[in-house]
């Protein structure tokens, strides 16, 4: 039982990161019916942005730097990626918005390759070590289950961001407009909603959340490198599909389930199969319930 709770705790922490990334996939899909394959790479850029910002602020490297400086590091990385998301939308996706889906898909793969190679050029192919922005500490919960203060931070920050996102989407005028645009673009523009601007905002928010995931992963798994976004990107995409692509709560649940399943596989089967579980889940979802757990059961729009 102790083993189970330990893997559950690890899975929830790791799953929160998937959930944050999955939100970006699901929001962009919801609004454009586009799978933004570059999203995992935006997460990578977020990790590097946090890495360089932490360096600039001396967090984790200078002895007596306050751990509170982690906050501007996180926010700065989110801002940088929000901007990157806006640029990707404006310069890569907007020009092909009226083209076929295949064109959009190829564009997405192109953006992904571009970011990966630009990352290798700019940051170097060798892994970098994320600074210890917060001094690590281990906390023993009941029954010998151990968690780190990093894992707790990951979960808390993720929950905070997800609550914020939910309130934004449910309560604000822009959030409601996002939902209207994702339901029907033309009908939304007939309300006077500036559809293009709403799409840009969606990319900004999704990318900022990916940056937060990049920062958080730096805390718990400090080795970062330019191709680090590929696997988590795929898994977070599967998490979004599992939750029902297009659904925000679905992405959150899907991410958590993905993280927990991975760690249960690690704990009870073998860490060799850790990466395989994502594909097993993907195949199962596509076979059993392609709309995912919370997906809208609507026919695909042409």
């Amino acid at each position: 039982m102790q083993e189970f709770f330990q893997q559950l705790a690890n899975g929830v922490a790791w799953g929160s990161i998937y959930a944050l990334i999955a939100l970006g996939y699901t929001m962009v899909y919801g609004i454009l019916r586009l799978i933004n394959f570059a999203h995992g790479d935006v997460y990578m850029v977020g990790a590097f942005a946090a890495y360089y910002l932490a360096g600039a602020l001396g967090v984790g490297t200078v002895r007596d730097a306050s751990p509170l400086l982690a906050v501007p590091v996180l926010l700065g990385a989110m801002l940088i990626c929000a901007l990157l998301g806006v640029l990707i939308e404006l310069f890569a996706y907007r020009p092909v918005r009226r083209s076929s889906r295949l064109t959009a898909l190829i564009t997405a793969i192109g953006v992904s390759l571009f970011l990966e190679n630009a990352g290798i050029r700019l940051f170097g192919a060798d892994p970098k070590f994320f600074p210890q922005v917060i001094t690590p500490r281990t906390i023993t919960l009941g029954e010998g289950v151990m968690v780190t203060n990093h894992q707790i931070t990951v979960v808390l920050v993720s929950v905070l961001l997800m609550v914020g996102l939910t309130l934004f989407v449910q309560r604000t005028r822009t959030g409601k407009a996002m939902r209207a645009v994702s339901f029907h673009r033309d009908a939304a523009s007939l309300m006077g909603i500036p559809v293009d601007r709403i799409i840009t905002i969606t990319f900004a928010i999704g990318s900022a959340l990916a940056a937060a995931a990049g920062f958080l992963v730096g805390l718990t798994n400090p080795k970062i490198e330019p191709l680090m976004g590929i696997m988590p990107g795929i898994k977070a995409f599967v998490a979004a599909v599992l939750g029902g692509i297009g659904s925000i709560p679905g992405a959150m649940i899907g991410g958590l389930l993905m993280g927990v399943s991975e760690y249960l596989v690690v704990g009870y089967i073998s860490s060799t199969y850790r990466d395989a579980i994502a594909f097993v889940i993907l195949i199962l979802v596509l076979l059993v319930k392609p709309t995912g757990l919370l997906g809208r059961n609507v026919a695909e729009k042409v």
């Binding site: 409601k176 939902r179 209207a180 339901f183």
Partner: peptide
């Protein structure tokens, strides 16, 4: 907007 409430539709 089927994914919005009646009131939200009117707000839009």
């Amino acid at each position: 907007f089927a994914n919005l409430t009646v009131l939200e539709n009117l707000e839009m």
